[in-house]
């Protein structure tokens, strides 16, 4: 396909995304905000996946960020915007400490430990009654930006922009080479001078900062945080399903997947309550079994085949 055409198309989509509040009502904006949030999480999950590490801990860092920001406002008197930045920094610091312990693990061991960590965060926060409000959680006096629907939408869009920017930077920089080499063959990577642990740690911290930052945006957007809401397993499962469906190891794949699955989920939620969860499960299984490259992978393959015919 023509590169310039794609660029123009992308610019148009970006403009439409920014301008959406001008012509969409409250409900579509709310749906779009959800899709955008999950899209951003899906992108960060994929960024770490490019090194071959499968994290099941998104909800953990997201929830940590949500609590950090709500606590920042309530206990430290931060402004809501500052508290969102603080949420990113806090999640990043947590990831740095955890990373030293767990980034020597590989494959299923790494995945399970990230899953367990997310659960540990939730349990610890739930039991620090005096500080975190326990199972009932914490409520803010008000929602950020006065709860304006378009304001909240733009705030979430800004979160997505951070994730997109980071992911694009990964694709264009040494990260792309380091992470792909580590995923393909760690031994060959080492022999080419790649300090595997350092690159994994950097990637884990960067993606966690963004996940915490998104958690902060979420906490401030709803004006509360409870263990069950911000550590919900959906924050891990949905982004994962979206990235798998759209196509892993790229920025574009998770975008496709999030739009498709996000809208489908919204529709399904109305048709069959909780049925959407079954649908995610089925999609994950079908994609893994039959289209391991995801939809973007299919498109790339078709594109290459047609170019091959031309050549």
């Amino acid at each position: 396909m023509n590169r310039n055409l794609l660029r123009i198309l992308a610019a148009l989509v970006a403009v439409a995304a920014v301008a959406l509040p001008a012509f969409a009502g409250a409900y579509p904006l709310q749906v779009a905000r959800n899709v955008i949030l999950y899209m951003a999480l899906a992108i960060t999950w994929d960024m770490l996946l490019r090194s071959g590490q499968i994290s099941f801990g998104i909800a953990g860092l997201f929830g940590l960020g949500a609590y950090a920001s709500v606590l920042g406002v309530l206990r430290a008197g931060m402004s809501p915007l500052l508290s969102i930045a603080f949420a990113g920094a806090f999640a990043g610091l947590a990831a740095l400490l955890i990373g030293f312990l767990i980034l020597r693990l590989r494959a299923i061991y790494f995945s399970i430990v990230t899953l367990a960590l997310a659960e540990i965060f939730r349990i610890v926060i739930q039991n620090l009654h005096d500080f975190t409000g326990g199972p009932e959680g914490l409520v803010l006096d008000g929602v950020i930006l006065g709860g304006s629907a378009s304001g909240l939408y733009w705030l979430t869009l800004a979160g997505l922009a951070v994730a997109l920017g980071a992911s694009w930077w990964f694709e264009k920089s040494k990260f792309h080479f380091a992470l792909t080499a580590i995923r393909n063959n760690e031994t060959a990577a080492k022999s080419s001078g790649i300090d595997i642990f350092r690159w994994l740690l950097a990637t884990f911290v960067i993606t966690s900062v963004i996940q915490g930052f998104l958690g902060g945006i979420y906490g401030q957007s709803y004006g509360f945080a409870t263990p069950d809401s911000v550590f919900d397993a959906n924050f891990t499962l949905l982004p994962l399903a979206m990235a798998l469906l759209g196509g892993i190891h790229s920025t574009v794949g998770p975008i496709f997947g999030a739009v498709l699955l996000g809208l489908a989920a919204e529709w399904l939620k109305l048709q069959i309550p909780y049925g959407h969860l079954v649908v995610y499960g089925v999609i994950i299984i079908i994609v893994i079994l039959f289209i391991p490259g995801g939809l973007y992978g299919l498109i790339k393959k078709a594109n290459r085949a047609s170019e091959g015919r031309k050549a």
């Binding site: 080479f177 001078g193 790649i194």
Partner: peptide
């Protein structure tokens, strides 16, 4: 081939 130049050098 590039990765050696990028990371070792």
């Amino acid at each position: 081939v590039m990765i050696g130049s990028v990371f070792s050098r």
